[in-house]
Design a protein around this nucleic acid. Structure first.
Length: 226
DNA sequence: GTACAGATTGAG
DNA sequence: TCAATCTGTACT
């Protein structure tokens, strides 16, 4: 199976399970640019692909660190109440966009913050330069990854199950893959490979700040705050 | 209306 | 350590 998109049911499960299983999944982001050359409009397509290596779970309304704490609905956080599989993206500190993915059924304001990606050079178009020392910094951190993927408020409420400009897949394309192959669930991340720590930047949240809801792949150099 | 903190980041 | 600079909240 080649780059098959994660289905709705992947996202409509308990948030901590989704946050854990998002690790190792691939995020694809085709970018179409229009260039005018001699009065002729040309479409130039780029594509960025990265593996998710760090996530954080936000479980409102009980979670003091969640924007939906106490069940509040603001212009910003109302997106969190959509059914699992939608993008909740918001501006942090007035400068940096934060990419979240909603979980659970509609009306439950829970989501997963994507904190870091490992860019996959050979899957990007054009291919990334693997010798570049800047590769590791491209998407290490929630603000950085949105800059790299050119994500902003336009993507708020985007549906990852149907969107043509961003999606998630369990596995990467493989020439060896047979069409008859059984469903591919992608790279299996085993428990010892996952580190769970307290979330970053939410020390105001009392006991909720201590919850081990930040998850990342052990030893992965693309994880933030090393 | 004003004041201030925040799921960040890079410069000094 | 600090400041960039929007959004939400708690005030005046």
């Amino acid at each position: 199976m080649r780059f098959k998109r994660l289905p709705r049911k992947f996202y409509t499960r308990p948030t901590l399970i989704v946050a854990k299983e998002l690790l190792g999944k691939y995020l694809a982001r085709p970018i179409r640019n229009y260039r005018i050359s001699n009065g002729v409009k040309k479409i130039v397509t780029k594509k960025l692909v990265g593996k998710i290596v760090e996530t954080e779970a936000y479980i409102g309304p009980k979670d003091r660190a969640s924007h939906a704490y106490g069940g509040k609905i603001t212009e910003r956080c109302k997106t969190e109440y959509l059914i699992g599989g939608h993008i909740y993206i918001y501006l942090c500190y007035g400068m940096y966009w934060q990419l979240n993915i909603t979980t659970e059924k509609a009306g439950k304001p829970e989501c997963v913050l994507i904190r870091a990606l490992e860019p996959i050079p050979q899957l990007c178009k054009p291919k990334l330069n693997t010798t570049s020392p800047g590769l590791v910094k491209l998407a290490r951190g929630p603000g950085k990854l949105c800059q790299w993927l050119k994500l902003n408020g336009i993507f708020n409420e985007e549906d990852l199950v149907t969107s043509k400009r961003i999606w998630l897949a369990a596995s990467i394309p493989s020439r060896r893959a047979s069409p008859k192959r059984r469903e591919d669930h992608g790279e299996k991340i085993r428990k010892p490979q996952i580190v769970a720590t307290k979330r970053i930047g939410i020390d105001y949240a009392g006991i909720w700040a201590q919850k081990p809801w930040r998850l990342y792949l052990k030893g992965n150099p693309f994880v933030s705050r090393k």
